[in-house]
Design a protein around this nucleic acid. Structure first.
Lengths: 349, 349
DNA sequence: CTGAAAGCGCTTACAG
DNA sequence: CTGAAAGCGCTTACAG
């Protein structure tokens, strides 16, 4: 799609931008006065203020925030690091953070780690180096959070927590929600239930496992009624693992997938094996994402409001900046089971 | 989830960070020497370099990039503004941009506009103010791009173009792809085809409409064989509009949805009306997103590789920075129809 | 009410 | 090979 008028020259990137010095000169005032007129702090007569503003406009002056921040020792940028932008949960989180930042006149520096701790650490260093006013992250260890906090920058851990002593957090009650959704399965009469999960070392995985186990135990089922399957967190490899699981003679009659990606893998596995949900296999999971209301039957799941988590994280950070000395605290948001059609009593033997 | 050890004090955000001055002092050298040792530019003896580096490490020194950038007149941050993070297409785009930024050691400042031109303009001003090295955006008009370019910051427009004379662009051949997918419909024998679309004023909407019309015309069909339905770009309201369309006696036997959100709306509309796809209604669309391979039948669509578009946009920006004087150019990526099961010959009357 | 001066943390010619 | 000085663009006490 070439420009019909032919390529025009692009203004050279080196093109000098107007500085406050030039604004001051054009308005015939000193630097200090121009600054006061533009920022609104300090005294300046109405007439002069007008003249300065006019000069600024006519020069298309845009203040250099980096210079301003350097001087003022603050910036209006938050650093945000999420595990993986390919996962809809993190996307909703980022969307929530983004809009709440904007509402409060903060810009958002976003990094996504592709699930690698090393990248998270690099992002942490970048954020410190760029002198952001605060950081929100979905931590993979305590290292990034502590590094940032040690450099005097407030951190909010969201989704999971590793450094709850030294920074604030926003999470859901994973144990409770996992309990609820598993309990519903035992109530339906399932006696062999799979948990597909990718990790146990974060608070999320650990607590979802606890909740799962607790529901199994309270139903009076033997410990081996709960079969825990570990998988890497990507759909194809999880799908492969699950096909193997479902091929066993003693396969579970119900599966609890610990997040939306694993749920997708279970769903696809069932499809390729032509296993009917819920008649032959019940499926429940964590995270409520788009496709779960588009497939048939729709999927029963634990809905976490990721957008709200993101917004809350920003609010928490703002609070922390306002009151630095307050002890660290954790906000626990509600997560509720939304019943749809993907679970049913186990098939008769 | 309270910390079992009880809340510890959080390091005060105002906590002073080590500066290069302190590093120099501890190493017993001057500021200049410390700087040279740390940046690697300029002469410094091996012994001194070691001493300085050791001092930096022991002080957990992290250089202030904002100060460095101010001095050097460059930053390693790109500004990115996408229309809407709730739309999976833009998310993939952002993911591609994000990873390519990281590979090239750039940080990404992300803003999402929620589809409002005003927000795009605000983001543009923020980016200029923050002195980013370049901007990538999915423009909603020529205003933002031109504003940024006029301030000497290079811009790449992606997905659509408004200022192709004054900045680079990365797009797909929308006309061609729309033609192909519509042509497949006329070949199947459809004589009444709906185009559901949200705008015609951007290059995307305009070209998709052109391609659609062209295919209708070339099939020798009367102009009114193509029925164009305009809708707002959100699923519920589009769904409403489409239900009305499909309730008409002369309803189309096939629909081309101009993007993934509208496709979702059509799909949901068909479902609520219990219209079988593809037996009673063929559905094809633009954008290839997750759910399209999860519903049955899977959806035939024009697949644009949004991640690759994002990566290409970053590469383009990098090129532009390297060679500012080169005439503006546009990269046109391929977009191909992926046939799945959602289209079939029209039902017999 | 206004302006001259210092300084935020860094880098970079320039002298030595 | 090293250090003193200037300066990036801004803000902010401080004098007047």
């Amino acid at each position: 799609m070439a420009d019909p008028a032919g390529p025009e020259p692009i203004p050279a990137p080196g093109k000098p931008r107007a500085t406050i010095k030039e604004v001051a000169a054009r308005a015939g005032v000193s630097l200090s006065t121009a600054s006061r007129a533009l920022t609104g702090r300090g005294y300046v007569s109405a007439a002069v203020r007008e003249r300065v503003k006019k000069a600024a406009t006519s020069l298309a002056y845009v203040p250099d925030d980096t210079a301003r921040n350097l001087r003022q020792r603050v910036s209006r940028v938050f650093g945000v690091a999420v595990s993986d932008l390919r996962d809809p949960f993190y996307v909703d989180l980022a969307a929530g953070i983004s809009q709440q930042c904007r509402r409060n006149n903060y810009a958002m520096m976003l990094a996504d780690g592709g699930g690698l701790e090393q990248r998270e650490l690099e992002a942490a260093e970048t954020f410190v180096s760029l002198r952001v006013a605060g950081v929100i992250l979905t931590p993979m260890s305590k290292n990034a959070s502590e590094f940032i906090v040690n450099h005097g920058v407030p951190v909010v851990e969201v989704d999971r927590q590793f450094a709850s002593g030294s920074c604030d957090g926003v999470v859901v009650d994973n144990r409770r929600a996992a309990y609820d959704v598993t309990h519903a399965l035992t109530e339906l009469g399932h006696r062999r239930i799979g948990l597909v999960i990718d990790e146990f070392t974060w608070t999320t995985g650990r607590d979802r496992l606890y909740g799962f186990r607790q529901a199994i135990a309270e139903a009076g089922l033997p410990e081996n009624a709960g079969v825990v399957i570990t998988s890497r967190l990507d759909v194809p490899s999880a799908q492969h693992t699950i096909v193997k699981l479902l091929s066993r003679r003693d396969r579970p009659t119900a599966i609890f997938a610990a997040n939306n990606l694993l749920a997708e893998a279970v769903w696809r596995a069932a499809e390729t094996m032509k296993l009917q949900i819920p008649d032959e296999l019940s499926l429940v999971c964590f995270d409520d994402v788009r496709w779960m209301t588009m497939v048939r039957p729709a999927i029963t799941t634990v809905a976490q409001d990721a957008v709200a988590m993101g917004e809350t994280a920003v609010d928490t950070l703002l609070q922390r900046i306002r009151r630095p000395a307050r002890p660290a605290y954790t906000v626990v948001l509600n997560a509720t089971v939304v019943e749809r059609g993907s679970s049913a009593p186990p098939p008769a033997r």
